[in-house]
């Protein structure tokens, strides 16, 4: 009997008013700093202007890779391997850029020249910036679907590893004509 009385007395109502005051104060502050769009960035350095006395002979790379982009003809990879040039064309499909073909060719070149990390982008003047960003995204990293296929065994740690990078260093080669 006494237990039932005690249990009945123990019910109480929580005072939520101060808690609500705090939340009402925080919400306007958070509303001011809300970001509905997440901004990220892409690095695309341009050649640096230096004076003649600053010029040092840089080590000559074994091979350089240039990607020409044209609305009419599509993509053209140009590999300059110690003066020996090799071109790979990726033609447009029904007047649109063949992005899948671009990735396939980029992977093939990366497989042949794994030491190349830098890609010189040389687009035509009428290419929109949006298309350039899409192209840069495609040649920077392998797509998710093709990462497993390109995996290899890392002998140093004896574990399965994957090289997801294609050409992460992209520069605009045609700046300044």
């Amino acid at each position: 009997m006494s237990y039932h009385r005690r249990a009945g007395d123990a019910t109480f109502e929580l005072n939520l008013a101060p808690f609500l005051d705090i939340i009402v104060s925080i919400v306007p502050m958070l509303l001011l700093s809300i970001a509905f769009v997440q901004i990220k960035m892409i690095e695309a350095p341009t050649p640096q202007v230096v004076t003649q006395d600053q010029v040092k002979a840089p080590p000559k790379p074994e091979a350089t890779l240039t990607l020409h982009v044209s609305k009419k003809t599509g993509f053209q990879f140009e590999v300059d391997d110690s003066g020996k040039k090799q071109n790979t064309n990726v033609n447009n499909v029904t007047g649109q850029f063949d992005m899948d073909g671009l990735v396939t060719s980029a992977i093939a070149i990366k497989t042949k020249y794994p030491q190349i990390t830098k890609l010189q982008l040389a687009p035509d003047s009428d290419i929109a910036f949006d298309d350039l960003v899409k192209i840069m995204d495609r040649v920077r990293e392998k797509p998710q679907s093709q990462r497993a296929a390109a995996s290899f065994t890392d002998k140093a740690v004896d574990a399965k590893a994957e090289n997801r990078q294609l050409f992460p260093d992209i520069v605009f080669s045609s700046v300044g004509g």
Binding site: V37, Q38, I42, T46, V49, L132
Partner: peptide, 26 residues
């Protein structure tokens, strides 16, 4: 278009701003 972007990149390069980063949306 890239033509206008090229002019801006070229001018900023001459002013010493060669390490260009582009803001994009996720």
């Amino acid at each position: 278009p890239y033509a206008a972007l090229q002019q801006i990149l070229y001018t900023s390069m001459l002013a010493g701003y060669y390490d260009v980063k582009f803001a994009v949306m996720t």
